[in-house]
Amino acid sequence: MDILEVRNVGKTFPVRKNLFGRPTLELHAVRSVSFSVPRGSVFSIVGESGSGKSTVANLVAGVHRPTSGEILLSGEPLKESDRRRACVQMVFQDPESSLDPRKTIRFQIEEGLLIRGMGNARERSGRVSAMLDLVGLGRDLLPKYPHELSGGQKQRVAIARSLILEPQLLLLDEPTSALDVSVQAQILNLLMEIRGTRTLTYLLITHDLKIVSCFSDRVAVMYLGRIVESGTVSDIVDSPLHPYTRALLSAVPDPGRRMTSDPVRGEIPSPLDPPGGCAFRTRCPDASDVCETPPPRVLAGGREVSCHLHSGRT
């Protein structure tokens, strides 16, 4: 069974309100997004900043409520009270801000157990130590404060504290993009190792296609709040269908190849005023008149793409 199913989820944020609190300007951060994540797999969402990928993570985490659609966790609809479930935990992009600067490492890792009243002091301490071992940190860090740790160490602490509640789904919101490249690899390897030792599903939010290609099972590419293409990693990386996916892939730097031209023209349009029809048409090298109408969702062989170019491919 799928651990996570997202059905036609949309989220709008009011940007400006009139005197009576009615929104006069709304931001459609996510529009009608659907995907499902099989238990034990790694599902990635990629996109530029402003594509709505972090909003999707926040919706799944229960930080925001979806404006439309529904989110199912292990077949159960997500409820308001589910915000505090232990089974979904998050690791954030910036290890600097994900740890409370005024609490010791021990307290931050242990707090989840304390809140749930799990175990006595000795059991909790044992589990904290086990978590530190798992993420490859020494116990000498326990009495320290976050500012005494390096970025990589902090991210390990963040992972340890998220895992201590034994979650089934771990949301990784750009878990490595604030780290040095060498440390990024360590953290990714650590996340891979951890997945080997327990049944854990990852929902990875990233803009880095390299991470996706070596780490993920399935990928969804988001652009301006919509999923433009999704499929297995090999489908997407080896034979991208959507022009935006192709552009993203050609934007990945490759030392053996000179960059020929700008892979994507211009800036991402403002999500407050996205282009009608296909949202990507203003930057698309293959755009034509037909793109002013909404693109069809084309399903083919376990993958999905919304683009007029492929409307004949069902």
């Binding site: 985490a61 930080v63 915000r83 505090r84 479930r85 232990a86 979904v88 935990q89 998050m90 954030f92 992009q93 910036d94 801000s97 994900s98 740890l99 409370d100 931050q108 707090e111 989840g112 809140i115 749930r116 963040a158 504290r161 509640l165």
Partner: peptide, 17 residues
């Protein structure tokens, strides 16, 4: 706005705490 506030919520801490 900091992530550790979101983290604390996801740990199951009630809003007042």
């Amino acid at each position: 706005r900091q992530d550790y506030i979101r983290t604390a919520r996801s740990k199951g801490l009630r809003d007042r705490l």
